[in-house]
Structures are given as C-alpha cells and as structure tokens.
Design a protein around this nucleic acid. Structure first.
Lengths: 241, 241
DNA sequence: ACCTGAACACCGTTCAAGT
DNA sequence: ACCTGAACACCGTTCAAGT
C-alpha cells in the first residue's frame, strides 16, 4: 500500500536456455563490464525509480546480469554502496556562484540544493539514515560560508546560518517529496481532503479557515522559496543591528 | 557498521521445554494480553532503542510472547502498524499555549515539536517515509496557525510560515539525530575530524577557517533555536512592512 | 475473534570454489 | 582480481487450521 512500486513484475533473471557461448549474444554473463561507475549509475537509477526499499543487492546484480556476490568485489557491503551513491549524487550539485550580492548567492546555493534533493529523493533518505562526515558537499558549503562571511557575519553566526539554510532545505525537500509521493495517488489525496473536511471548526477554527491555503501546499519550490526569503530577511535584519 | 544495533544477541524465542500448562508459569502464550495499545507501546520502545531497521513483525511478536501472525489480528500490515505508531507519538506533543505574545507562542510550539522529533528519531523517519494526511498534529498546527493569524499575517503568509517553521524543525532534528548517532561512535567522530583536517585551505578557505565552529555543531537545540530566531526575525520584519 | 504453524517468496552476507 | 553457487539466518505475509 505504501510501497506500490515494490514488485515491477519483470523477472530478475531471464532464464537462459542456451549455453553461454551461443551465437545470438546477450547471454547472462557480460564478462568484464562491471565497475564502480556502472554499479553506482545503475543503483541511482533504481533508487530514483523505485525508492530505497526497491534497491536490493540481489536485484541490482540481476539487472546488471551478474550473480549477487559479484557486487561484493566492488563494495564491501550494501551500506558502503549507499554511501558511495550519496557522495556521487552530492557531486552533482550545480556550480555555485562565488561573487555578487551575498543574498543572491545564498539564494542560488539554497535553491540548487533543494532541487537536487527533490530530484533525487533517495538523497534525503540517505541524509536521514547514514552517518555523515559533514564535508560531502564541500563546494556548496564553502560557497555558502564565504557568502556569509563576505556579508560581514561573525564566525559563529555564519556557521549557524549555514546550518539553518541546510536544515530548511532538507526539511522542505522531505515534505515536498512526501507530498509528491501522494500526488499521483488519488486515494491519498482523498484521504487528505477527507481528514481536513472532517476537522471540527470549533476545536480547529484556524485550520478550517485556512484549509484552502493548506491543501494548495504551494507548489513545493514556491513554498521553499518563501521560507528561504524569511531566513534571508532575518539575516539581513541581523546585519543591520 | 552503520547498524551496529542490529543483532542484540538475545534469543527471540525462549525455547520452552515444559508443556503449556506446567506450574511455574510464564510459558510462551500469555493468552489474551494482546491489544492495540500493548503492541503500539512495545513497537515504540523497540523503534526508539533499535531504530526503524530494528523493528520486525517477527521480532516484535517474539518479544510479546506470541507467534508472528498474532499481530495481524490487530494491524493489517507492518505499514499500518507504523502509521499507528506515528500518530500515537504525535499525540504526545506537549500542550501548546494559545495566548500571549505570538512570537513566544511560535517559539514554544516549534521547540516542543523539535524536542519530540529528537526524542523519537523514528518519528523523523516516519515523516520522511510514510504518506501523511497532514492533520496528524492538529493541535500544534492549530496553535501555530492561530498565533500567526493573531499576529496579523494574511492567510497565504500564515500558511507558508507554518510550513517553514515545520520544515526547519524537521530538517534540524534530522541533522541532529544523524550527529547523535555518530556522537558515541569514536570511529565516526574521527572520520569527521579527519575529513575536515584533510580539506585543502586553498580550495576551501572558509571551511578551514570555520572548522572549529563547524565541528562544535552547537549542541543541537541551540542550533535549532538560532535558526528559529532567524525565521521569527524575518516574520517580525515582514509585519513591519 | 484471536492465535498458531507451515509455507512462499524474498532479503544481506559468508564461505568455498572456480577462472 | 573477478565472479559463481550453495548455504545461513533472516524478512513480511498468505493460507489453512485450531480454539
């Protein structure tokens, strides 16, 4: 019910009736085509399409045409594979501006992080699941911190603001991805509207009053942007004081 | 390595050598002691102690002294059980103030949500994983929205600000829980410091400069509070304009 | 209604072995 | 070094059955 993507129905191992060297090709073992890159690329595709639960070592190996244990030559465990995927995705962060108005720079960096998180929901899951060294997105972190320092913030405030921007992007993306999951699903939308409609106007007058604004749930990136502007306004104000 | 809590070593089914009706008691089947409440309570304990991966239907049933299938009388699936746990935990949100200064009210509500998320990390995972109707925390939502409306914000801004506050708390808690997981772990701390120390001062001058501020990672709730103040300052400023 | 026990179709990973 | 195949100790859930 929550994981309708689980079984896609395709057989994992095509039963190969012919011997390995038969003419007509694409038998089961592609010999030496495996590599870190190939595995990571495929893992990311699976993760994006079927979600974290959809990635299994056995299934991934099957898709790559090898036995389950072949992957263990390249990654010591599934955990290690997931870490590698996370780092790989983070490297996909758009190049970030290092000059210009500090507010514009922070906006650009924050937005590109948010977009990356929404584009690869699995990254959110990895952020929330796997231990972080804290320097996986060094380029973006550097750009963000230097913008804050250039603006004139002290070290502590700059570090705190950096984390706040990160936290907000992470939370907003988490929420958005959750809603996205339920968006296509008519059943889920119905449940949402039903539970809003069932709210008691006496106990929850403001929720009922703002029901329209709450279900619109502002297309995601727009909502993210509004929160970002709030934080930026707070920063600008602090700079004035 | 990432899930060191996985196998606690205790046997799940004590092998009962005596018959079911032997004197001396506490045989395997406690007859009619099962209920929604008992199952949920135990599930939450397991979730808090061993994390989401640590909760299995079989294991939970074993701890309750029943066969795996006994749980399915009360919950149609593991998904349904998890939803029930989430709703149960959310009901634990501290009572929220409904009068007084709107800034104080927002601070109180935000902080109690943050604390709940950090106290039950599994809630974060459920937020990021399971479809939401959006009204699970109706009391807190109502309190937050009414504070914003009382302050004088229009409907759209109030709805957006509510979500921003939520997103920030969620993101901050996610990050904090991640760090907590690595805090006891000396290996993880070493990795963190090592990767910061290995940063090139030419490519990442600001990260290196702020290394101290970044590793301190401001005790969690303090970091959350600083972000919250930024958002509140942004709101206050918007009200003036 | 409440619970059991066997079974099915999965997992990640170890181990011994092949090339 | 790279990959296979069998095996181990798990999963969630279905199904038929017992009380």
């Amino acid at each position: 019910m929550s994981a309708p993507r689980r079984d896609s129905g395709e057989p994992r191992h095509l039963p190969v009736s012919a011997g390995p060297a038969t003419a007509g090709g694409r038998a089961r073992a592609p010999r030496h085509t495996l590599s870190h890159e190939v595995i990571l690329e495929r893992a990311l595709v699976v993760l994006d399409e079927r979600g974290p639960e959809g990635l299994t070592m056995r299934g991934l190996a099957g898709e790559l045409g090898v036995g389950p244990m072949a992957l263990y030559t390249y990654f010591r465990s599934k955990d290690e594979l997931l870490d590698a995927v996370r780092d790989q995705v983070l490297r996909g962060l758009a190049d970030t501006p290092t000059d210009g108005d500090w507010v514009d720079r922070l906006r650009a960096i924050g937005t590109s992080l948010y977009r990356l998180l929404v584009a690869h929901p699995t990254l959110i899951h990895l952020f929330a699941t796997r231990p972080l060294a804290g320097t996986e997105a060094a380029e973006a972190t550097e750009a963000q911190l230097s913008a804050l320092r250039d603006a004139g913030f002290d070290r502590v405030t700059a570090a705190q603001a950096h984390l706040t921007l990160l936290h907000h992007a992470l939370g907003a993306a988490t929420w958005e991805v959750q809603l996205n999951a339920g968006r296509g699903d008519a059943d889920s939308r119905r449940r949402r509207q039903a539970s809003l409609a069932a709210m008691s106007p006496e106990r929850y007058p403001t929720i009922v009053e703002l029901a329209a604004e709450l279900v619109t749930d502002t297309v995601g990136e727009e909502q993210f942007a509004s929160g970002l502007e709030l934080i930026l306004a707070g920063l600008r104000q602090r700079l004035g004081a």
